[in-house]
Computed example of a mutant assay.
Amino acid sequence: MKSILLLFVCGFTTLYLNAQPQKKIAGKSGNPVFPGWYADPEGAVFGKTYWIYPTFSDKYENQVFLDAFSSSDLTHWTKHERVVDTLNFKWAKKAVWAPSIIKKDKKYYLLFAANDIQSDQEVGGIGIGVSDKPEGPFRDHLGKPLVDKFHNGAQPIDQFVFKDKDGQHYLIYGGWKHCNIAKLKDDFTGFTPFANGKTFEEITPEGYVEGPYMFMRNGKYYFMWSEGGWTGPDYSVAYAIADSPTGPFKRIGQILKQDPKVATGAGHNSVIKHPGKEQYYIVYHRRPLGETNGNHRVTCIEKMEFDADGLIKPVQITFEGVDADAIK
């Protein structure tokens, strides 16, 4: 009985210690990279500054704004509060999720989902804000959602804006296990149909749940997404590679998942590439060990590497994070 009790105490102690914030190592980002409950992070680089735009992770009714974080080296982060506020988007009332930002013609466009609509009869969907600065404040670009209906079964959430090599911008989005791609107009006020007449093409790969992200490397299109349930330990990231932004995308495998010694529910990622070299980072959220609140998610960063065939190597989640890496 004493042996069983000792094992229980030791196991609980290990779980408790792993769930606590780890002491930051000098020259390392540490994980999470900044304090607070934040999820669905989008990483970006503007000039010589790294940015992360996450969801404020709380009850839906409290998710009425977005904060942003900037850094010159990935290790020291400055918080910019309420870069998006629903006070400036009259149709958005709650559940402001998964920002995606892009710079175009000296303007910054930030897209987000709001209201968690469950049908075409509800008000909400994907909105778009515009600002002269990456730290906002962002004002409503349209005065209404950019996407406010279900197309091909995709809930209008988890948006990502991808710029192709020919300058065409695409909106890639979707929850409820469906993913769409659409060609944005040059002024981001709507969409241009594809050659086949469709506005929303479905590109859902096997295993897709939500959280799409796309980037190019060596002429190939890498498509990443989240699998599993967002409140569960099985939340993870998988990917595919194609020769076109519209695919077809055949699932290659999973590259980010929980580590029972570090954290659970590792998913909903984006990617940051250092603009001066071939160095990639994966930005994602996870849930601290021992945490039972589904909304307790924190933002983390790890190095992302490729093998000789261009496949993404499995990512090991850590407490240490990444080395300082300034943009010179």
Rank of each mutant, 00 (worst) to 15 (best):
N152D: 12
Q121F: 09
K198Y: 05
Y208D: 06
P21G: 03
Q168K: 08
W97F: 15
S57K: 03
P248K: 11
P212V: 01
N152A: 09
D105S: 14
D58S: 14
D259E: 13
F319P: 00
Y281T: 09
K94G: 05
D85M: 02
H296T: 14
H178N: 07
G228I: 10
S71C: 13
K79D: 10
K104M: 12
V262I: 15
L289T: 00
V209A: 10
T318F: 07
F8I: 14
K48A: 08
P99W: 03
L87R: 15
G11M: 05
V237M: 12
D187H: 05
D186P: 05
C300P: 05
E278Q: 13
L146V: 12
I317V: 14
L66H: 08
G207H: 12
H296P: 05
N152I: 02
V83Y: 00
Y173A: 11
D166L: 05
A182H: 02
A95V: 01
S3P: 01
N62F: 06
Q155P: 04
L5Q: 12
A240T: 03
G310I: 10
M214C: 11
I327V: 07
K79F: 10
F200G: 00
C179M: 15
V209F: 09
N88L: 11
D58N: 14
Q258V: 02
P134I: 00
A182L: 08
F200A: 06
R286S: 10
D186Y: 06
T86Y: 07
F160L: 06
I312A: 07
H141I: 02
I317T: 02
F223P: 07
S70Y: 11
H296Y: 15
L171R: 04
F12K: 05
N18M: 01
E42G: 01
P212H: 12
W225G: 06
D73F: 01
D259W: 05
D323F: 11
G125C: 03
W176V: 02
K94Q: 14
V9L: 15
I312Y: 02
G190L: 06
E61H: 10
M216N: 11
Y50C: 09
F194C: 08
E201Y: 00
H268N: 08
E278R: 00
D158Y: 10
I327L: 01
Y280I: 12
I4F: 12
L7F: 11
K144P: 05
R217D: 04
D309K: 14
G167R: 08
H151N: 13
L146T: 10
K257T: 14
D120N: 15
H285T: 04
E210D: 15
D187I: 04
W225L: 01
F306P: 04
D164L: 01
M1E: 10
K107D: 02
E201D: 09
K313Y: 02
L256N: 02
P288F: 01
N293R: 14
Y109R: 07
Y222G: 13
I282H: 01
Q168N: 09
F215E: 14
S71M: 12
P193F: 09
T246D: 02
F8C: 14
W77D: 12
T231A: 13
K79N: 15
H151M: 03
E201C: 05
K277I: 11
T14C: 03
T86N: 15
I172Q: 10
I117R: 08
F65Q: 00
P233D: 07
P137S: 08
V33L: 09
L289W: 04
A114L: 03
I52W: 11
G219M: 08
I117V: 06
L110P: 06
F65L: 06
Y109G: 10
D309P: 04
C179N: 08
